[in-house]
């Protein structure tokens, strides 16, 4: 078991190397030369050469990759081409906002999607199944950013229930002192009810968007997994034994949980992208908005760091899910 675990963790090393190669090449194919941006308009030829040397841009490409690799390992993601601020610090500063949105969104999405999928599987092609299948197809098809805009139109403009989509807290309130980075939790911890209330109000619509988008695939997959489990030999045996329905359902649920959790883990990658678009619409000020703005502005030092951090996040989530499966599923431990 420990050996398997160690092997799984070691597999991350070559993966990281390939990821870094991708992010390195991303800036190479852009063909943009940041030297002019970084040195400023009044730079002399010597100063430009100095900046070029400091970025190792005067070296052959494989040396440049080596320099990039080394810097990333030291936690240096470079500086923004536009603001010249360190990318890693900016990302860490904004990450809690994104994690807050993603966490609540996926939690609510799974809280709606898993029971709906299970219920649909109990009576395939029944009324509930038909309705959820259509809703899930709709969730697959609605453009994320458009959903956010519609939410703002309906709940802010028409009904006036929600605050405008401008950030994480009312503009006239001071955010609570940073403890966890989540304004809601920090406000509650600091007993600043006004700030916590405002943060909650700002969270509702974007979280709802992430929840709707994440629920669609969760419903579909939960239903498929539960159907497979319900058709398995041990459930049929339990039925033949005359076990009560409730007990059979509990058994099916227990055996469905591992594949469902694994699936949600792999879905997180895509949902991070979804969350970025939601952030952009709601001016959330998190990692996603930072990254998308950089993509639009052509600030490739930031784009590179942003894409790298998202990939690392997925790597960690996949690792955690695999370890979870190894620990909960004895059969998975036996497989090579």
């Amino acid at each position: 078991m420990t050996g398997l675990l160690a092997r799984r963790i070691l597999l991350v090393v070559p993966l990281l190397a390939v990821i870094l190669l991708f992010t390195f090449l991303l800036v190479r194919i852009s063909g943009s030369d940041p030297v002019g941006l970084l040195a400023g308009p009044t730079a002399t030829t010597e100063e430009i050469a100095l900046v070029r040397a400091s970025l190792a841009l005067d070296q052959p490409i494989w040396v440049q990759f080596g320099v990039y690799f080394g810097k990333v390992l030291q936690g240096d993601l470079g500086n923004s081409w536009l603001s010249n601020r360190p990318v890693l610090a900016e990302i860490l500063d904004r990450a809690p906002a994104t994690i807050e949105l993603l966490f609540w969104g996926v939690l609510i999405g799974a809280g709606l999607g898993i029971p709906a999928g299970l219920r649909a599987a109990l009576r395939p092609d029944g009324g509930f199944d038909q309705v959820t299948r259509f809703l899930s197809l709709l969730g697959f098809s609605v453009p994320t950013y458009w959903l956010g805009l519609i939410m703002l139109f309906v709940f802010f403009y028409l009904l006036g229930w929600a605050p405008p989509g401008m950030g994480r807290i009312d503009l006239f309130l001071t955010p609570p002192d940073r403890i966890t980075g989540s304004y809601l939790i920090d406000g509650l911890l600091a007993a600043d009810w006004e700030a916590a209330g405002s943060a909650f109000g700002q969270l509702v619509l974007p979280v709802l968007c992430v929840a709707i988008i994440s629920a669609a695939p969760i419903i579909k997959q939960t239903r498929a997994i539960a159907l497979e489990v319900l058709a398995s030999d041990y459930i049929r045996y339990a039925r033949a034994q005359g076990l009560p329905h409730r007990q059979i359902r509990a058994m099916a649920l227990r055996n469905s949980m591992t594949p469902i959790v694994t699936f949600i883990g792999t879905e997180i990658t895509g949902l991070v992208g979804t969350t970025s678009l939601i952030e952009y619409v709601f001016a959330w000020g998190g990692l996603g908005q930072y990254g998308l703005s950089a993509i639009i502005a052509g600030d490739f030092a930031v784009v590179q760091g942003y894409v790298l951090v998202l990939a690392l996040f997925s790597v960690i989530v996949f690792l955690v899910v695999d370890v979870f499966v190894m620990l909960t599923e004895p059969r998975a431990g036996a497989a090579p």
């Binding site: 390939v18 990821i19 990658t269 992208g273 052509g298 894409v307």
Partner: peptide, 24 residues
Amino acid sequence: MRGFDALRVFPSIILALAVVAAAG
């Protein structure tokens, strides 16, 4: 296959946006 596995860790929408922005 290893390359495809590595691609899976990037959110497809962000990867597409970033590469299109980079390629022009």
